[in-house]
Amino acid sequence: MTEPHLVDGADDNAGDGDAPAADPRGWLLPRTMGVSDLGPLAAPISEHNGQAVAVRPLMDHPGWLAKLYRPDQHPEDAHRLDLLISAPGTLPEADRAVLYAGTCWPAARIHEAGNPAVGCVIPMAPEQYRAELRRGEFSDRRFVEIDWLAKSDESIRGVGLPSPGFAGRLAACRRLTELAAILERLGLVYSDWSFSNAFWSPDQRSVYLIDVDGCQPKKMPDLHQPNWADPLTPPGTDADEYTDRYRLGLLVAKCMTGQRDARAFHTVAASLWQNQPAVSEVLLDMLLATDRERRPSAAQLSQALSGGPYLRTVPRPTRTALPALPRQPPVPQPPAEARKPVQKPESAPSKAPETGPQAGWILVLVIAVILLFVIASNH
């Protein structure tokens, strides 16, 4: 079976506003909508975030959002959005269900006179991705970012979430890589693999990918993301499928190990998953290959996380050395005065016994006894 691949002309009706999208998410809507077709919009739940000026709920359609773009979008964005909206129709039914359940995939393009890409209609993340987070005496119900999986079980329990354990981390990463593999099969670059662009449900052990309406075919500008820079994608060049593979591997390594820095690399290399050594091998090839085009695919990582083998499609890549571990902060030392050894008090010099009145009378008595003895001897 030929794998689906999103290309121009994949759906001749992609921009046909009269053709409703085959979308199982509860609202049969046309693939293009005028701003006036949206009905009243509620107050923004997000503003000036990335390419969007605002994300506003549709009051007549609970569970749906209008993501409104900045006015300086590229002229081709309308066509790109139409391709994304039609893309699920090219997938097998099972993959289409996974994509809809695990992402806020755009359902319709919003337009107005003079602007064909005002924004898009997207579903709101399901309620299962919200949880009550405790911080001291306060608590806040909010979406749980996948950021939390890159922390220890103890830290996760500390905010009132159930600790995932190895099984929970594995299940979440399986779903994450399953979504990545579908995007890769569609020929789409996501680039934005990071802590802030996916939600995590500890109870359902699942993840939900957001900002997928920014996906582009084959390549896209590589926006700088602190701590997520691909060492083999030079600054100023585009992100592509190989950039995606590195960032996906980095995200999975951090979530699987609960480590946020170079310790994640070392933990993976230590092969803690003795029953699934393929996971370690795939991740190390993704993260340390010296040839970016030899990085394993998202599908290979997904297969390894599901207990399958790691079947390399290219010769084993040469790997770079593990990154240096971060230096441990120095142990706090007490002030200099406190570090001086405790000295024993010097012994007081011995003193001659004091001669008090009682000692004087004893001496007189002794002398008297001696004199009496001498007088008695002369008689």
Rank of each mutant, 00 (worst) to 15 (best):
Q300C: 08
D140Q: 15
H266L: 05
V212Y: 01
G136V: 05
Y310P: 01
V55L: 13
G50I: 06
R70V: 04
P226D: 14
R327N: 12
L232D: 10
F143D: 05
M1F: 06
L188K: 02
S201Y: 05
C104H: 03
H266C: 07
Y246N: 03
N275R: 11
P62Q: 06
W105C: 02
T267E: 13
E154A: 13
L91K: 02
D8N: 13
L99M: 09
Y246V: 10
V252A: 05
E281L: 12
G356R: 14
E47R: 08
H48G: 03
V55W: 02
P234C: 09
M220T: 12
A348P: 02
R263Y: 05
S36D: 13
A117E: 03
E337L: 15
P44T: 02
W27V: 11
E346L: 12
P202N: 09
A113V: 11
A229R: 15
N227V: 15
W361Q: 12
A289H: 05
A19Y: 07
D285Y: 06
A22I: 08
D291E: 15
Q276E: 15
I210N: 07
R31D: 00
D203N: 07
D140V: 13
A150M: 13
R312D: 03
A198H: 09
G89P: 08
P332L: 04
W193F: 13
L223Q: 14
L161I: 06
P123R: 01
G15T: 11
G114H: 01
